[in-house]
Design a protein around this nucleic acid. Sequence first.
DNA 1: TGAGTTTGTTTAAACGATTAAACCATTTTT
DNA 2: AAAAATGGTTTAATCGTTTAAACAAACTCA
Lengths: 343, 343
Amino acid sequence: MSKKPSLKDIAQRLGVSTALVSYVLNNKKENRIGKEIATRIRQVASELNYQPNRMAQGLKTNRTRTLGLIVADIANPFSAALARAVEDEAEQQGYTVIFGSSDENPAKCSQLIDTLLNRQVDGLLIAPPAGMEAKLTALQQQRTPFVLLDRYYPSLHTSYVALNNYQAMYHAVEHLLSSGYHRIGLVTFDTTLFHMAERGRGYLTALRDHELPTRKSWLKAVDPCNAAIETAKAIRELTTGAHPVDAVVFASNMLTLAGLQQLIRLHVRVPDELAVVGFDETDAYGLFYAPPTYIQQPVSEMSQQATRILLDMLDAPDRIMQVNLPANLIVQVSSLPQSAVHG
Amino acid sequence: MSKKPSLKDIAQRLGVSTALVSYVLNNKKENRIGKEIATRIRQVASELNYQPNRMAQGLKTNRTRTLGLIVADIANPFSAALARAVEDEAEQQGYTVIFGSSDENPAKCSQLIDTLLNRQVDGLLIAPPAGMEAKLTALQQQRTPFVLLDRYYPSLHTSYVALNNYQAMYHAVEHLLSSGYHRIGLVTFDTTLFHMAERGRGYLTALRDHELPTRKSWLKAVDPCNAAIETAKAIRELTTGAHPVDAVVFASNMLTLAGLQQLIRLHVRVPDELAVVGFDETDAYGLFYAPPTYIQQPVSEMSQQATRILLDMLDAPDRIMQVNLPANLIVQVSSLPQSAVHG
DNA sequence: TGAGTTTGTTTAAACGATTAAACCATTTTT
DNA sequence: AAAAATGGTTTAATCGTTTAAACAAACTCA
């Protein structure tokens, strides 16, 4: 009916000043405030179901207890999982989250950052698209606390929490090698983003370390805007032609999904004709006839750590922290040892 | 480096009052303001990259241009898709979204509502869990604009946008019947939520309208907290025993996923031994060997309409609107006519 | 010419909180 | 008995914005 009660309402009802009410409800100057009036104030506050206006609070204190989160696309299960974990950790610390999807578009991302900052978020968690270096540097100069999540720029000295992508991919390739597959393809995105480059580097280095040839035609970088179609094409090329592969690794969940679908369409038997390693965890994998081996990111831990680091940075924006977490390789039947398959 | 520029900074630089700056930047009193000073103000504003402090604005105007969104779990692809569509529509209208996951827990949901309101959101979009009637009624009494999304309470006269769940399910069952399946099971959630009840009603009514018997043992209501395990059990029971079914419909995406996985585990051939109709759209379906027929919700349209209605309600909180959207049945091979399968 | 209108700008209060400083009684210390 | 410390509360400024009202100067018109 009536509007929300304010400090003033409580104060008036008791004939005291708003200052006193504020002190009581914030437990400040505890030792100096009358015990009796304090309990009466608290009582009226709960009677009226008083809830402080965070905007007003934020205006005065410059702390809104709100975090901004920018992911590539909240509808992508990986992004959604990140968001969920951020939400939980933030809530536990009394923070709320505002989010936005960048659609891998640096202009949209910059604009999103500004929007969130106008809303006076205390800090930002960002999974940045390519080409955000300048904006992030600017942020850093104005001492806005932020932590990069999942992706980061090696050229920038910023806080981040990400996977050790190089090691994750290296490990996956080694697993395939030790399972007897030697002609290994990689389907990745055509992007300058460092985390993808690292996955590529892990792939190439693993092959070289085992003194195996690396073929250009085995490394497919597909256009992120056209992932489904180009992945399908990549799979066709990898499995046919003069030098077909006997195994393929995918560098993201979208690519894995698109790739597996194409394998179904082409009736390529996994792992008999082609071994497969996917990226990220999704419910979808459970519906594939040969449950795929995949590189599992510690999503919750990533978000949790990033959120914690951000909260630390609110008090010390210059304390930058960089974390690379190890991946987990979940081995299933899509990469059974060749001996087992053909033996 | 320095803090963000305020109206005051612009005013000082030009030796005018903040009021004048405010009028210019908000295009108020246009006819009365000097053309020259106006352009100088605008120039300085863009030089300093002035961005209004939305908190302060909100404090004064009681409009933060921020919406609150509560879904069951942002990590669920259906919720994520809703969120994404809300985000896009809100952004287009100059609004930002704060979100939270209720985990189907009414206490958490109520608490979330309060948190969002303290953040002075202008209105709420809520996909409510069971047992929120009282809280929603209270919201309505304090004239807080909100729109229910995906779910609603028939007993409450509130705005909502949801699927026509009854019709969606009725249609799906009719499709199975016309494909020659007559012993149809339903796997749904054990909940009092109206939208689920409607799906159940659609199932039963369709069978009755075709003068087919309805067996209690063919209607499995699984515990949402234990969906994977209970769904597996339900499938086992439906496919074996004295009266096995020849088709099964799932009432949600989670149930469909769990159900299909179990069918793989049990080596039940779809559609040869069992026809299947799923609920909602997910990438996962593409990995199932027999792409499932499914009930497709118009997710984007739902979110879009709900957001628009909410924005309308900001100006007229009493204008309540109720929308039931039709579902789409996407027919694929999991429900091929029996004649085709066995013929 | 002087009253009334128009034009351009400022004043000042308000939104809902926080918080240093001031204030006035008591009580304690010297 | 005067000075100092303590206890309990209020005053008032402030955060960044909005906006009704006041104001001053210039213009209009009989």
